[in-house]
């Protein structure tokens, strides 16, 4: 579904991604690991369509379409979901209104009628339970005054509401205690199917105890320097990244 070829991207003239290649097929879970500043979040942002970054070279195909022809909202409506590392607080926009607008905009994109209020509220209730999101949070403004863990759970809640085909979870584990981590991982696992895929971006192996990846990639200095199966994550946990950095490409 996703095919990244020789992707280069920069911000303010500084190149961050220096030639990424990655293939993701339905049903797969990919983990992208790597030290700080290696370009993990940039990759996530570029795929979601953040205009801050300039793509200077390379191609990304998503279900055969050129991803860069699509606006961020079109990508979302076509099934790409970015779980933000730092979810944004939006005072004055209620969670209900936000999700209702998002669900119905996506339905409109697919040529479907807007969802009725009662169906929508029922869907909200179901999905809230999935990530054990406090009912009261849904009545508040988007992420406003949410704790770090609540914000991350809220990302997975939105993912559950929107049922994406490709989820990119950017450091969803950062700032989570072990219980919250388990809840978030459970949510992701329950949403997993043969038709959708997940890219999990993380620092630590810890999350991968809960969300078991099919592939692990190590991103360093804007390039994937090593790919392997789930055992690679364990190896990284044990040895750190230094042994890979020396060789740069393996």
């Amino acid at each position: 579904m996703l095919s990244i070829k020789n992707l280069h991207a920069s911000i303010e003239g500084k190149e961050i991604l220096k030639g990424i290649d990655l293939e993701v097929k339905p049903g797969e879970v990919h983990a992208i690991m790597g030290p700080n500043g290696s370009g993990k979040s940039t990759l996530a942002s570029v795929l979601a369509g953040r205009e801050l970054f300039e793509v200077t070279e390379g191609k990304v195909k998503y279900f055969g379409k050129d991803l860069f022809d699509l606006s961020p909202e079109e990508r979302a409506s076509e099934g790409i979901f970015l779980g933000f590392q730092y979810p944004i607080e939006i005072p004055g926009v209620s969670m209900v209104n936000f999700m209702k607008t998002a669900v119905n905009e996506q339905r409109k994109h697919k040529g479907l009628e807007p969802m009725s209020s009662s169906d929508f509220l029922k869907l909200m209730r179901e999905k809230k339970e999935l990530v054990e999101l406090d009912a009261a949070l849904a009545n508040r403004s988007v992420n406003e005054g949410f704790s770090g863990g609540e914000k991350k759970r809220n990302e997975i809640f939105q993912m559950a509401m929107l049922e994406p085909k490709l989820s990119i979870l950017d450091e969803t584990d950062s700032g989570l205690d072990i219980d919250a981590l388990r809840i978030v991982a459970n949510g992701v696992n329950k949403l997993k199917s043969a038709d959708n895929a997940t890219i999990v971006i993380t620092h630590y192996q810890r999350l991968l105890d809960y969300i078991v990846p099919d592939y692990v990639h190590v991103l360093y200095n804007g390039k994937i320097i090593k790919s392997g199966g789930k055992d690679l994550a364990l190896e990284l946990e044990e040895k750190g990244y230094d042994w890979l950095k020396k060789g740069e490409t393996v």
């Binding site: 369509g49 939006i90 936000f98 607008t101 998002a102 905009e105 988007v142």
Partner: peptide
Amino acid sequence: FYLRARGIKK
């Protein structure tokens, strides 16, 4: 961007 990333038109 956050809103657009959820499918809401600009």
